[in-house]
């Protein structure tokens, strides 16, 4: 490490302190809430002392144990949260696979052509990428009501795929550009059509890029609130809008722990995802930057 020479102790201590402070800020809320979701409301929102959320005296009094699954039972069974979980599974799987299908084709074309329309498509995609999603939703609602396709899962899926496309083709375009053109050109000299060259010569070496882009498509579909909250009806709601509709009722009924449990249930899959795909997420976040 080049920075070892001229190493200064006060600066090293300062950076370490900043880092420690940041780690506590970044991670503490999640651990706290995951732990607290197994307590009763009187402990998680304790009027006496927040230590109660750690030890759980009221939980022991009310349920007999220091941990309780009441919140989860209420959310998953009583409020049928499993239904939204299943909708989220359908939406994310479909959005990710269709986005990748469209995106690899489009990104490949953009990376192998240097005409001016390529430039214009990429610029249009950049502008589309910047549009707040809710402004587009304002454009969907009325036509979708008229066509009677509002509220169904396929509608939300295709909309999310389209919203995802600008980002997907930009990212895949830069991944495809890192693959030498000689590869597909030699395949075409050997008699492949353009599509065969794409499928047989390029795709086998593109998997890392496809997995990284897929992760981000998944995250967009999973984290979306604007589109799914406005375009899906009550029965088809995915997890995030479902949790937001919990909020209206739990406050009055004193069942806020249902919302806490549902929130933890929706956040934990993301922790696991980051744990397994950390390297891909980091490379994906920087992929756009490398190109400048």
């Amino acid at each position: 490490m080049a920075t070892k020479i001229g190493y200064s102790r006060p600066l090293a201590i300062a950076t370490t302190l900043v880092l420690l402070l940041w780690l506590i800020l970044a991670a503490f809320p999640f651990f706290w809430t995951v732990w607290g979701s197994f307590k009763v409301q009187a402990d998680f929102f304790s009027r006496e002392s927040f230590w109660n959320a750690l030890t759980g005296p009221a939980t022991t009094r009310q349920t007999g144990g220091a941990f309780t699954l009441d919140g989860y039972r209420g959310a998953w069974i009583e409020r049928e949260f499993y239904h939204s979980v299943w909708n989220t599974v359908i939406v994310t799987v479909c959005v990710t696979s269709i986005s990748l299908l469209f995106g690899t084709l489009g990104g490949y074309a953009l990376s192998r052509s240097s005409r001016s329309y390529t430039f214009w498509i990429l610029i249009a995609a950049l502008v589309f990428r910047a549009m707040p999603h809710i402004t587009l939703v304002a454009g969907y609602l009325l036509p979708f009501f008229e066509m009677n396709i509002w509220g169904h899962l396929p509608t939300a899926i295709i909309v999310l795929v389209a919203i995802n496309q600008p980002f997907t083709i930009w990212m895949l375009h830069s991944f495809f550009q890192s693959i030498p053109k000689d590869l597909d050109e030699s395949a075409m000299v050997d008699g492949c059509t353009r599509f065969q060259a794409f499928r047989l010569a390029i795709m086998p070496v593109m998997w890392p890029g496809v997995i990284t882009t897929g992760l981000f498509s998944f995250l967009l579909a999973y984290n979306d609130f604007a589109v799914t909250a406005m375009l899906l009806n009550q029965d088809n709601q995915t997890m995030v809008p479902k949790i937001s509709s919990f909020l209206g009722t739990v406050q009055t009924e004193g069942t806020i722990m249902y919302a806490v449990a549902a929130t933890v249930s929706a956040a934990v899959p993301l922790f696991i995802l980051v744990m397994f795909f950390q390297r891909q997420i980091v490379s994906g976040l920087t992929a756009g930057a490398v190109k400048g």
């Binding site: 469209f102 084709l105 489009g106 589309f128 587009l136 295709i158 909309v159 795929v161 389209a162 496309q165």
Partner: peptide, 13 residues
Amino acid sequence: FIFPSALAMLLFI
């Protein structure tokens, strides 16, 4: 190659 992606963006953006 670009058709599906462009169509999706045209129709829904």
